[in-house]
Amino acid sequence: MEDNILLGGALQEHLSSMGWDVIWVTGYRLGADILCRMSFDIICLDRRLPDGDGFDLLRRGLARCPTIIMSAFDQLSDRLEAKRLGAADYLIKPFRLEKLTHRIDLLAGLEPSRVPALNPSRL
């Protein structure tokens, strides 16, 4: 989930080109609805969305898979809270797409920067 159109579009294009199935949503409510209806292998979650707090999705137990928080907030307290809530990783914006790809590969159990042969996951 990413509300920034430029970043969200770049993430979707990059991860799709790496062989991942990507569902991109820009808001909390739609994201929560989709998380209630579908399962995912990995979630990339913005900390602040226009209609809610990404951390609330973790608090509510809706992120039932490894979750990478993406945030412009570089507060230690936010990073610690993300870990306490079960997030697998926390990336500070701006970040390089290769860094996100590497973290996703690690969480998916792939060799870093290896393109999946088939579309094994949704993000």
Rank of each mutant, 00 (worst) to 15 (best):
I5N: 14
I43Q: 00
S16G: 12
K93W: 06
F40V: 07
G19L: 09
S121H: 11
R79Y: 00
A88Q: 12
A88H: 07
F40D: 03
R37F: 02
E13L: 06
I42D: 01
D53P: 04
S17Q: 09
R37P: 07
I23P: 04
P66C: 02
I34R: 14
P112E: 10
P120N: 03
M18Q: 09
R47L: 15
G9K: 12
D53K: 09
G27Q: 12
M38L: 15
V22T: 07
A88M: 03
K93M: 02
N4E: 13
L85T: 04
T26D: 15
P112H: 07
M1G: 06
L58H: 05
R48P: 07
A63F: 00
L107M: 02
I34E: 11
P66D: 01
A10H: 10
A72P: 08
L45N: 11
T26G: 15
I34F: 13
H102E: 13
R114Q: 10
S17G: 06
G52F: 14
V22K: 01
N119K: 15
G54A: 05
S17C: 01
G8V: 12
L100D: 05
A32W: 05
C44K: 01
A88E: 09
L85P: 07
D46W: 03
L62T: 10
R122V: 14
H102W: 08
M18F: 11
C36V: 13
R64G: 03
S39R: 15
L35D: 08
S71W: 08
D78Y: 06
L85F: 04
L49Y: 11
I34K: 12
R103N: 08
I68N: 08
D21S: 15
L106S: 10
P116E: 01
L45G: 00
P94N: 14
M70R: 01
S121M: 09
L106W: 08
G31M: 04
D78S: 11
S17H: 09
T67Y: 10
E81R: 10
D51M: 03
D21F: 15
L15A: 06
L76R: 12
R47P: 02
D105H: 02
L100M: 05
S17F: 02
D41W: 00
A87T: 05
G86Q: 06
G109N: 13
L62Q: 01
G54C: 00
R122I: 14
L100W: 13
D21N: 14
L35S: 04
L97G: 07
T26A: 15
A108K: 00
Y90V: 01
G54T: 04
P120T: 00
D41I: 01
G19Y: 06
R60Y: 11
T67Q: 02
L76P: 07
V22W: 00
L91S: 03
A32K: 11
P50L: 11
P120V: 12
D56A: 12
L123V: 12
L123D: 00
V115D: 08
P112V: 11
S16F: 04
R29F: 02
C44T: 12
Y28L: 08
A72E: 09
T67N: 04
G27S: 15
E81D: 06
D3W: 07
G9A: 14
K83Q: 13
S113Q: 12
L107P: 01
K93D: 00
F40L: 13
F40G: 10
F40I: 04
M38T: 14
L62P: 07
W20T: 02
L106P: 06
R48L: 14
M38K: 14
G109Q: 10
L97T: 06
P116Y: 02
